Amino acid sequence: MPTVAPFDIEGHVIGAHFLGDIPFFATAAGEIRRLDNGEKVTELHQGMLTCVRDPFHASLLTGGEDGKVMRILADGSAVQVAEAPRKWINVVAGGPQGAVAYAHGKASHVVLRDGTTKVFPEERTVEGLAFASKGLRIAAARYNGVSLHWVNTNAPASDLEWKGAHTGVTFSPDGRFLVTTMQENALHGWKLEGKPGDPRHMRMTGYPAKVKSFSWSPKGKWLATSGAPAAIVWPFSAKDGPMGKAPLELGTRANVLATCVSFHPAEEVLAIGFIDGMVLGVRVGDGKEALLRRPGKGAITAMSWSSNGKLLAFGSEAGDCGVIDIAA
């Protein structure tokens, strides 16, 4: 049976991540709390707006109401990457070669390893950022689509247009697809291969609520999302991705919304967090479910696995957090 080590924090938890085997929890108040031979606290921001794990570097990246972008290392030490006084930084992303992107207003900023900053103006406010897995290429989600920039060239941006407000963005692990979350209850996607200037569109609709969480399976065959009374899991293994295919619905619960999803790092097993604080583990192949945590005080807002896939950290909007040992 999985065992849960509970850990309570005051306030809303916006991030739960592992660096090595050490769990880190980020609070909206601006603190990072890590469980490393006891609880350790790092004061970071006057109000934290985002905390993500850098997929290319063993660190966390945060942005705050104080205009600062910070990198946090496994020992809890913090380094300031950038600062935009009097701006709110609610979008950050980690990229190859030590690059860090952040946005405020109608511009994306990429800080390179040597400290050089590249600025990419947009016609609309940037709502989401993501780096491609290969090459220093960044996607900026905005109103009416996504702009793609090669960071180290002066080439003009490639624009992927689709009407509506695009609030988040992610590349598939193999770089063949780009998917956005939208202000409406939908995803939109583009197949990036094919003729230049002719990307194929993918509409993924039918959600009863906004999609606020998504996670790719280890080899990129599946994209799991929140926003329904189950995890909605789209197939991406075919050459045209989910076009013409129905998604899987995993962990279905009547009228209880899934609020957070996180794929296991090595297996096609999905952790699903719900609005009532419950956490389920579901195997994609046969839909078999395992209860990982009973309902708690608040909606699950953050989850992630340790690199070995034996531990799952979670946090909620009410501050009840914990680490689930699934190997126990």
Rank of each mutant, 00 (worst) to 15 (best):
T153L: 02
D240Y: 06
E193Q: 15
K191F: 03
P199L: 11
M204Y: 02
W222R: 06
A141L: 10
D198G: 08
R176E: 03
K219C: 03
G189N: 01
S237Q: 08
A155C: 09
A140P: 03
F214L: 09
I232Y: 00
P235E: 03
K191P: 00
T167R: 08
R142G: 07
T225F: 03
T153C: 06
K163R: 10
L148F: 12
D159C: 12
F177Q: 14
A140T: 11
K163E: 10
D174W: 06
N144D: 13
T225I: 00
K191I: 07
E193G: 13
T181H: 11
V169T: 02
T167Y: 05
W190V: 01
G197I: 10
S147R: 12
V179Y: 04
V211W: 00
V179N: 00
G145S: 03
A231D: 02
R176V: 00
N185A: 11
L178Y: 12
T205I: 08
P173M: 01
L178H: 11
Y143V: 15
V211A: 00
P208Q: 03
H201T: 11
S172D: 05
I138F: 15
N152D: 15
G189A: 09
H201I: 13
P196H: 10
A231K: 00
E184A: 14
S226P: 05
P199Y: 15
G241Y: 03
W234E: 07
T181K: 05
L223E: 01
D240N: 08
M243E: 13
R200D: 05
T153K: 09
H166Q: 13
S215R: 08
K163Q: 13
A141W: 09
G220D: 04
T225M: 01
S172F: 07
H166R: 02
S217A: 05
H188G: 05
R142Q: 14
D159I: 14
D198L: 14
L187Q: 01
M243Y: 13
R203N: 15
P229C: 14
V146E: 08
W234N: 05
K163L: 10
G197C: 09
S215D: 01
A209I: 03
V211S: 00
T181R: 05
P156Y: 13
N185W: 04
L178K: 06
V169Y: 15
G206C: 04
A157E: 06
S237W: 09
D198P: 08
